[in-house]
Amino acid sequence: MAKVYEFLANGFEDIEALGPVDVLRRGGLDVKTVSISGDLMVASAHDVQVKADMLFEDVNFDDADLLLIPGGMPGAKNIDEHEGLRRALVAHAGKGKLVGAICAGPMVLGHLGLLRGKKATCYPGFEGELDGAEYTAAPFTIDGNVITGKGPGATLAYAYALLGQFKGERVVEEMKKGMMYY
């Protein structure tokens, strides 16, 4: 079973964090939410309190197949400033493993140089943070081991794209039908 870690920082965008967790868990992936705040309780950008599954300092990411960064501000900025997470993302991507980010989250990947020579999307206004990437403005963009999403309205399309990397198009189409995604 594929292992996914999604990072939560105070100020994360609710739907961009929880939508992919929902879709990926429904799809049979082992998804864990990881707080980088030092507390299991993390506040969303809209002040929804979410209890993460684990703390960053308690996780070894060697078994990860996918690392996920939700958007939202100041959540994405808080992720961008977390040195331990930055190192984990670079190491993970360096092994050719999947990384995903949506909305403001792709700026983290851009600041780390992980988007150079790749196509990527993000929330409008963050294009300048995608160091070396070709901005697509698409709801989601897959380029090699990097999957990026545009913003809140693209969350389900992005989540299905993530799921497709592990389960294939047939499973994704069945899930879309079951979730009434037209």
Score class of each variant (00 low, 15 high):
residue 168 G to W: 05
residue 92 H to Y: 04
residue 35 S to Q: 05
residue 75 G to R: 08
residue 48 V to A: 08
residue 73 M to K: 14
residue 69 I to R: 12
residue 61 F to K: 00
residue 34 V to D: 07
residue 5 Y to M: 08
residue 176 K to N: 05
residue 150 K to V: 02
residue 150 K to F: 07
residue 182 Y to T: 14
residue 96 G to V: 05
residue 23 V to Q: 01
residue 167 K to S: 11
residue 25 R to G: 05
residue 104 A to V: 11
residue 17 A to P: 09
residue 48 V to P: 02
residue 46 H to D: 08
residue 43 A to S: 15
residue 38 G to Q: 05
residue 76 A to W: 09
residue 89 L to M: 10
residue 51 K to H: 12
residue 15 I to L: 14
residue 13 E to G: 09
residue 113 G to L: 12
residue 151 G to E: 11
residue 14 D to I: 01
residue 23 V to P: 13
residue 102 I to R: 11
residue 95 K to T: 01
residue 65 D to P: 15
residue 87 R to S: 07
residue 142 I to G: 08
residue 19 G to H: 08
residue 139 P to S: 09
residue 71 G to D: 12
residue 119 K to P: 04
residue 120 A to M: 02
residue 162 L to D: 03
residue 131 D to T: 11
residue 30 D to S: 15
residue 46 H to N: 13
residue 161 A to M: 05
residue 128 G to E: 09
residue 142 I to E: 15
residue 116 R to F: 02
residue 7 F to C: 14
residue 112 L to M: 08
residue 148 T to M: 05
residue 59 V to M: 11
residue 124 P to Q: 02
residue 106 P to L: 08
residue 34 V to T: 06
residue 171 V to H: 14
residue 135 Y to M: 00
residue 21 V to L: 04
residue 135 Y to I: 02
residue 48 V to D: 01
residue 57 E to P: 00
residue 27 G to N: 14
residue 173 E to L: 10
residue 145 N to W: 06
residue 2 A to I: 00
residue 117 G to L: 06
residue 47 D to F: 10
residue 63 D to N: 05
residue 145 N to G: 05
residue 182 Y to H: 15
residue 155 T to P: 10
residue 52 A to N: 12
residue 154 A to N: 03
residue 115 L to C: 03
residue 59 V to L: 10
residue 16 E to Q: 14
residue 79 I to M: 15
residue 179 M to G: 02
residue 64 A to V: 03
residue 139 P to A: 09
residue 76 A to S: 14
residue 110 G to R: 07
residue 181 Y to P: 00
residue 98 L to W: 12
residue 160 Y to M: 14
residue 20 P to V: 03
residue 50 V to E: 10
residue 89 L to A: 05
residue 101 A to P: 05
residue 97 K to Q: 06
residue 59 V to Q: 13
residue 77 K to Y: 04
residue 68 L to N: 13
residue 42 V to R: 07
residue 179 M to D: 02
residue 78 N to Q: 11
residue 86 R to E: 04
residue 84 G to I: 08
residue 10 N to Q: 13
residue 20 P to E: 04
residue 161 A to Y: 04
